[in-house]
Computed example of a mutant assay.
Amino acid sequence: MLTRKQRDLLEFIHKRMQRDGVPPSFDEMKDALDLRSKSGIHRLITALEERGFIRRLAHRARAIEITRLPDDLGAAGFVPRVIDGDGGASVPAPTRAMPVQVDATELPVMGRIAAGVPIEAISEVSHHVAVPGQMLGRGGAHYALEVKGDSMIEAGINDGDVVVIREQNVADNGDIVVALVEGHEATLKRYRRVKGMIALEAANPAYETRLLKEDQVRVQGRLVGLIRSY
């Protein structure tokens, strides 16, 4: 049995992971639940973990996996969005986790994407990776990129992760996108429009937000999932 706050937090995390493929930051959780400090979020996270609704991934900054949901939040069709594994090897499901679908799609891994200082644009396939169909949703072309750097670590995206990207050329405020900067630099950042400019925001205080003119930035896709190998 969950308290109202525990349920609200679980629902918020679930919706954000369905939208972005990664969990929200503790600050975003605090604001969403109208709490005064992050200590309250830590207590709620611990309670959800003890009750088997989430699992915190060891040695990773704010990496959270939802392992099950209450029936009224649609648990019947739920599968975890973060995939743990090593080159496609099978991994035992967490205790009380819902069964994971076995159907998968092979996506091209288009080299590396910078989660830090932008690197040259990526255009060649380095290899392929199997991605659960549930992660891709309905329709649209997808591709994958290996993350290089730590600028998105507070969004749960770490160096060496593989991000799954849906191809699109538009984005909403708050989306994590692949952005092509001035035609030759590719970077993974949170996208916002600010007073006629495009802000590419890092999720690491060590990196500054980049403000660019609209014609300097071209969206090449939106983050929909994350694959992590150990």
Rank of each mutant, 00 (worst) to 15 (best):
L211S: 09
G111K: 01
V22P: 02
A75N: 08
A141G: 12
P80V: 00
H14F: 09
E120N: 13
I113S: 03
K189V: 04
A75L: 06
V170P: 01
R138S: 11
R218I: 15
S37D: 11
E124V: 06
K189G: 04
R19A: 09
R43N: 10
Y230R: 13
E50T: 05
S126H: 08
R55S: 13
T3D: 02
R62V: 03
Q220S: 10
R112K: 12
N204T: 04
G85V: 01
M17R: 07
P99F: 05
E50H: 10
V109C: 04
R68F: 00
H14T: 12
R193A: 09
H184F: 12
I66L: 07
G74M: 04
D172Q: 11
A130C: 06
Y191C: 05
G160M: 01
E214P: 07
P118K: 10
E50N: 12
E185T: 02
K38S: 12
A61Y: 14
V129G: 02
T187Q: 10
F53N: 06
D71M: 07
E120G: 12
I198T: 13
P70L: 01
P92E: 11
P80G: 01
S39Q: 14
V129Y: 02
A206V: 03
G87K: 07
P132W: 03
L180E: 12
S151L: 03
L212R: 13
R16E: 15
R210L: 14
R43Q: 12
A75G: 15
M29Y: 01
V22Q: 02
V91A: 09
H42T: 11
F53G: 09
A61N: 15
D159F: 00
I122G: 14
M152T: 03
A203G: 05
K30T: 05
R138N: 08
T187R: 12
Q18M: 11
L180A: 05
D27L: 14
R68I: 01
R210V: 06
I227K: 11
I227P: 03
L211Q: 13
G225V: 02
P118Q: 04
I66T: 05
G156P: 02
L2S: 04
I66A: 06
P80N: 00
F12V: 04
D8S: 09
A89H: 11
Y207M: 03
T46K: 15
E185L: 15
D34F: 05
S123T: 07
Q220F: 10
G133C: 08
K38C: 05
L211V: 07
T3A: 04
R166M: 02
H184A: 11
Y230N: 10
D72S: 01
L212T: 10
E65Q: 11
I122T: 15
P70I: 03
G225D: 01
A171F: 02
L57F: 11
D71H: 07
A203D: 11
R56D: 02
A32M: 06
L223Y: 07
E50L: 09
G74Q: 04
L145S: 01
L226R: 13
P94K: 11
D159E: 05
V129R: 08
G40L: 03
E65H: 06
H59E: 13
I64Q: 10
T67A: 05
I13E: 09
A141V: 04
P205H: 06
